[in-house]
Design a protein around this nucleic acid. Sequence first.
DNA 1: CTGAAAGCGCTTACAG
DNA 2: CTGAAAGCGCTTACAG
Lengths: 331, 331
Amino acid sequence: MGKNITIADVAESLGISKTTVSRAMSGKGRISEATRQRVKAYMEENNYKPNVIAQGLAKSKTYNIGVVMPSDYGIEDMSYFHNCLVGLQEMASLNGYDIILAVCNNNDLGQLKRIISNGKVDGVILMRTLVEDEAVKLLLEQEFPFVVIGMSGYNNVIQIEHNHFEGCKELTLMLLMKKLKRIAVIGGSKAHMVTASRIKGYKAAYTELGMRVPHGLVYLDQDNSIMIERAVDNIFLKGADCIICIDDAICSVVLNKLRKEDIEVPADIKIASFFDSMLLKNNVPAITSLSFDVQEIGRTACKTLIDVLEGNRVKNITYLGYKVELKESTR
Amino acid sequence: MGKNITIADVAESLGISKTTVSRAMSGKGRISEATRQRVKAYMEENNYKPNVIAQGLAKSKTYNIGVVMPSDYGIEDMSYFHNCLVGLQEMASLNGYDIILAVCNNNDLGQLKRIISNGKVDGVILMRTLVEDEAVKLLLEQEFPFVVIGMSGYNNVIQIEHNHFEGCKELTLMLLMKKLKRIAVIGGSKAHMVTASRIKGYKAAYTELGMRVPHGLVYLDQDNSIMIERAVDNIFLKGADCIICIDDAICSVVLNKLRKEDIEVPADIKIASFFDSMLLKNNVPAITSLSFDVQEIGRTACKTLIDVLEGNRVKNITYLGYKVELKESTR
DNA sequence: CTGAAAGCGCTTACAG
DNA sequence: CTGAAAGCGCTTACAG
C-alpha cells in the first residue's frame, strides 16, 4: 500500500527542517511565503498527507468523536438512525474529525466506557436518550464532553432537538383552520419526551384559537397493534374527524385498521402523522405530516460538539425547525 | 475529566523504568513474575488504561477499521445495515479495534480516500458492493487491506457472503416440491450482486428437477411501488401460482397490492420472501422466507479483516448459512 | 531480569 | 524567518 511519505521525508528532500515543514502546513509561526510555497508545492506533487494520528498525539487530541447508538432500534427508527449517522459523519469530516461507533443500551455501557478510557475519542454524541439515562450519568460524572440528540430530561446537558411542540402546534392549527374540530391523537409512551412535547403542541393550538380541547380523544401509551386498533374503534365511535398519529409506526397500524374496516381516507376521516421514517413514504393517499430533517440534526449535533471541544461557547439547547406538509389524507 | 495516568507515572511511582512497565502489560520480553505482579496490581488500583493511540503510533497501527456505508440505503436495507454494524462493532471491540465510519456512494469516494490517506485506519470493510464498484477498484489499486460484505464480482477480493444462490435454490426447490410450477420473481436492481445470485439459485432449482424455467415471470429492476404493482398485475395475468420477492420491501408492496385487489394469500397465490429486515415480522399470514443472520456476517467480516491485518491466512470467499422457514403464506 | 535510548510522525516553545 | 530539541504515550531492539 506504498508507505505514506512523512514530514521528515519532505524536510530532507527540501533541505529544510521538520519544524519549517510543519509550519508551512499549519500556517502557525512566521515563515517566508517563498518557502511555504515551495513546501506546499512539493507536498502537492508528492501527495503528502499528514498522519492525523501523529498530529493528534502531539496535540493530545484524537480528532475522533464517539457516537453511541442503541442496539435495540425498532423498525420505525431505522432510517432516522441511518440519516442521523450520515449527517454526523458529514459534519465530522468537514471539520477534520472522524466518527467512532459504540453500541450501547442502558444496561450495558461497556463500549462507551471503552472508547473514553482507551483515549480514542475527544467527545461523545448520544443518538438517543432515555428519561433516566445511564450513559448521561456516566458522562456527567466523568466530566467527559458530550452532546445528546433529543431531549434528555437532564438540564445541565447540551442537547439538540427538533421543535416538536411548535411543530405539532402548527400542524394542529392548520387542521383546525380546515374546519376540523374533533381531532384525536394516538401516541406511544408518555415517558418519551417527544410524545409529551407533541401533545402539548396539540393542545396549545386549540387554546390559541380560543377553542376547547375536545374531551377523551387523546390516546397515549398505545404500544401495540391491538391497543391501537381498539383506540381507532373508540375514536371513530366518538365521532372524531381526524387522527394525528404521533409516529409513523402507529400511523401504519392505523391505516391498516382503517383499510380493514373499509373506512376511507380522507373521505370518512382525515389522517396526519409524523414523518420521521420512510414507512409512509409511498402511501396512497399521501399522508399529511410534520417532518423533520434528520440529517440536519446529525450535522448540528456534531458541529455543536466540535464547538465544545474547541472551546467555543454553545447553547445549552438548540431547537431545529420542522416542515408541515399538507397532503391528500387531510384534503 | 481527570487526565489519564500514563506509563511514565506508573514507572515513577514504582521506581522502575517505562520499559519494564510496558513489558509487564504486553507480556513480551523477560520480566520477573514478582515485578510484573507489582505493576499489574498498581495499574489495577490506579485504574491505568493504556492510550491506544500512542500504542498504535509506536507500532504503526491504528487499531481502527474503516467501515464504508452507502448513503442511499433503501428502507428495506435499514435494519440489515444496522444489524451488520452491530455485528461489526462487537467483533471489533472484542479484538481491541474500533470502527470508523465513512459514508460513500459509487460516485463519491471522498470519505474513503480520506480515512485511508490520513492514516486513521488499518483496513476497510465495504458493507455493500456493486457489480462495478469504484471503492473496490480504489482499494485494490492502493493495495489497502479490505474485505467486502456480499459478492463483489471481483475475484481477487476477500469477500463474505450469505449463500444466496444455495439459499434461493433451496427455497425454490421446496416450493416446486409443493407442486407449484409457475413461480414468479420480483426483484430490485440487477446491478446488485445479491439479486443476480438469488435469480441464479431460482433457475438452478428448476434445472435440478429437470423442469424448464417458466417464461417471462422474472421481473427485475422494480424499484418503486408503481412498477411493482404493475408487475403483480402481469404476473397474475400470466397465471403464476407463487411469487418470490427478492426482498422484504418489495414483499410489503406486493402484499398491499394483493390486499387491495382482494387476492387471498395463500388461497389464490403463494408468497415467499427474503427476511432481511423486520418489515414482515408480524404479517398475517406469516410469510415463508429465506433468512440470514446479519449480525453474524458483520462479525465474520470483521474477524476476517482482523486476521488479514494480523497476517493470518484467510479464505478468499466465506459463505455463511441461511435458513428456509416455511410458513402459512405458501401452505 | 532490567534499563537507556531511539523511534512512531507530528507540534511547539525556546533560541537564534 | 528558521532550526534543534523536547515532548505526546507508547514499543522495541540493543546492552548489560
